[in-house]
Design a protein around this nucleic acid. Structure first.
Lengths: 208, 208
DNA sequence: ATCGGTATTGATCGGTTGATCAATAGCCTG
DNA sequence: CAGGCTATTGATCAACCGATCAATACCGAT
């Protein structure tokens, strides 16, 4: 039993290590696999160091959830903002980000979040925050198109809630029903086109 | 410490007791609260008796999930089959069963099921079975209307998958975003009407 | 080179979980 | 009423969980 050689890092760096280990575990095996010992092992560190930096494991889980979900949102956001065309094109990019480019690991993290937030207050609060951030983002896309006259969206926030709720459910389905993404995109496209008061072909003009 | 008085029941009856206790715990506190000791206490029984009848706790959890979900399906099924009117009326009843009459406890059990099935093989298999049963039921409603000419549903199964996925997601949302059920019903109604090729008013003619 | 601050260790505690099984006692049969 | 089958008990085990903290040793400052 040779005592493990120690490496002394700056608190910020070590904190990032622990956080990164927790993050990768969450993406691989779910939020419930983010335990003190599992994180410690992956970070190559003693168990005590994890709670030393994370304070409580529940907080670490909530933070990891926030990071994963936030990154996904920023990814879709930048894809939408990178669109050169009109507001209809932006909606197309949005739907792509919501469904076609969905990431199974992220979808599973969302499901874990819903389930675990019953017993983890911080996680519950974080989940609500992130859901609102998604709503605001999607609603802004619809509002912009409504303002420019590209389509009609009299209640952007309600529409955003609907689209997000629906696509979330479809993503959950897709975690076990793989292979129906194309079909799902078609349905959602038709649906949203109908709700926006534009012809389906307008939202489906790029090749899917 | 007076030894607890024993009551000797038939295996079938005791099994039902244990099962019922597990079921009520799942509806109250989620699938992850269905532990050997919690079930034993609620059933008024020694912990050992729970696993004696359930074999493994994972099996009990899977069975409880199946029962709860199956009962919900049968409830909606009988509501739809009780409709006297035409196939459009049946779709209205279906959407009601899927969204407005949604039960928060059942929705949470679904979420737990998705999350837990990563670590519980039997639960995963049960979840897939139940999801298919829902699909078949909803698809049959659409197929019937298509056959009778009440509306158009060229691919009933795909449409069923879409409607179920979307309403599942919206139900999950509703577990935290309470109070938007009416709005959600309106959106889903418009959406489904559009997909079925009938005027929205046809699906919304009863007072919501 | 050495000293001190502090990052890090890892054993430890109390709590939970599922599973097991010898011992017990209720109730039906004769 | 007696006997025996078996339903039931409850203590016990190993494995995991999060949290804690005195002891340790690394590394920058002097």
């Amino acid at each position: 039993m040779t005592p493990a050689k120690r490496v002394r890092k700056s608190p910020e760096e070590r904190r990032a290590d622990v956080h990164g280990a927790a993050r990768s575990i969450a993406l691989e095996s779910g939020l419930s696999a983010v335990t003190q010992r599992a994180v410690a092992e992956r970070a190559g560190v003693a168990p005590g160091l994890v709670t030393h930096y994370a304070d409580r494991m529940e907080l670490l889980v909530a933070e990891v959830f926030r990071d994963i979900v936030q990154e996904e949102l920023e990814s879709v956001r930048s894809a939408v903002e990178a669109v050169e065309g009109d507001d209809v094109e932006r909606v197309i990019a949005l739907l792509h980000g919501l469904i076609r480019d969905y990431r199974r690991d992220v979808a599973l993290v969302w499901l874990d979040g819903w389930s675990l937030s019953r017993r983890n207050e911080e996680l519950a609060a974080t989940l609500v925050d992130q859901a609102r951030a998604w709503e605001d983002f999607v609603a802004a896309v619809f509002e912009r198109g409504d303002a420019s006259g590209a389509f009609r969206a009299p209640d952007p926030l309600a529409l955003a809630r609907f689209v997000i709720g629906a696509t979330d459910g479809l993503s959950a389905q897709a975690t076990v029903w793989a292979g129906h993404e194309e079909e799902t995109v078609r349905y959602v496209t038709r649906t949203v086109a109908g709700l926006l008061g534009i012809p389906t072909s307008a939202l489906a003009r790029t090749a899917y």
